[in-house]
Design a protein around this nucleic acid. Sequence first.
DNA 1: GTGGTCTAGACCACC
DNA 2: GTGGTCTAGACCACG
Lengths: 128, 128, 128, 128
Amino acid sequence: MFTLDTRSRVPIYEQLMDQLKKLMMRDVMQVDEQLPSVRSLAQELTINPNTIQKAYRELEREGFIYSIPGKGSFVAPFQIDANKERLEMLKQDLEKIVSEILFLGGSKDELIQLIEKVKVAEREDKND
Amino acid sequence: MFTLDTRSRVPIYEQLMDQLKKLMMRDVMQVDEQLPSVRSLAQELTINPNTIQKAYRELEREGFIYSIPGKGSFVAPFQIDANKERLEMLKQDLEKIVSEILFLGGSKDELIQLIEKVKVAEREDKND
Amino acid sequence: MFTLDTRSRVPIYEQLMDQLKKLMMRDVMQVDEQLPSVRSLAQELTINPNTIQKAYRELEREGFIYSIPGKGSFVAPFQIDANKERLEMLKQDLEKIVSEILFLGGSKDELIQLIEKVKVAEREDKND
Amino acid sequence: MFTLDTRSRVPIYEQLMDQLKKLMMRDVMQVDEQLPSVRSLAQELTINPNTIQKAYRELEREGFIYSIPGKGSFVAPFQIDANKERLEMLKQDLEKIVSEILFLGGSKDELIQLIEKVKVAEREDKND
DNA sequence: GTGGTCTAGACCACC
DNA sequence: GTGGTCTAGACCACG
């Protein structure tokens, strides 16, 4: 279900975050759906529960999931307010990467096609 | 000449790399032009020479510069082969970021405009 | 009658305590009035009876209600002695929060207005 | 230097956060001053380095300090924007506590005096 | 020497 | 059963 490379310099918890984000972005996991428990996922992936917990904690900080002690972790509804700051950061990263791609021989058309191709789930805007 | 923020979480060697890349991408530094020596730059920026050396080493690994032992480091000519691998990596990063931006409420039009806006120096393929 | 958010990080028993306190503080529930039974409230709110019981137990410990085995739980009369300890604790919490608000840019006037605005039921000291 | 009660139900990392906040709020520790290193503080207090790290991580999340890998942790300059959300939360907490204090026999005058008494360091507003 | 990541365990509060 | 806290270690990247 998840592909982790323990030899990569990308921290395991980040790899896990990326893959969980993908599941949510592609609507494989939907709002309020429960994520695997910290312990069960740790056992399944044979990594330490603390590492899972770190991934979940960070996903919660970024507004992707919410955790309730004693109940579990769940996909969070869309909260546009919480995302503004992060959106700005991501756009800056994007610009840096685009610059480098163009410099290394990539074309703008190619990048625009890449963007058009991307599909993500659409979420209702719930502000509570 | 360079602006380094020692309070940033971004490693100093990475900040230096980014700024050197910018100079090359905007044609402020041109092919075969010599970069400042490790020692002089270290003194000017009052940072550890090892940090400069790490930045240069990484830039060389990414194909941006080449070093001649005993002579110095120089801006590398465009080498399409050396860039293929890195280009692929960058495109993957791009896709990840684009997905997240769209998921967090950004629009494709917005991103395409951002791409259109980016300007980089154009380089001939080994012909100058 | 009660609004419980099972998605909140605040434990359910604590949410229940807060709302019962409010009812007592606003005189909606008056001294010696009987609270709903553990079982009926659990059924009405579709939550675990143990959770209700924990809320009642804590309210009793804090001096807000008293329980008579076999008869039920009731709003406690004002007992200045039982409250001294808790009052001190609350004042300490208050000071901590006020300090942080001021440090983060809040003004004293703003806080004083907030205090003036608060309304609670007034209780005689054991005289009704 | 720090007083920790390992038997308290308040987590150690929170006790530590509170005391560090106090030092910063009373200007005992000033902007950009370095905090004790994770390891040294862990040794001094004979608690686990991870617990210190958790306290520092949370203080960073709340905007009180910033940490630079390889260099240390430092008192953060004032950033009014990052605090708005937290300020609202704190005011809600304040209102709840004030209500309870008044209900338990405290007077508004008493609380206003308590507020007037509080002293915190004033910080310049630096938005970068 | 610094903070950050990770493991292999333990105990607690909540439901 | 769940997530959260905490300990006692190890290893890595940075400067």
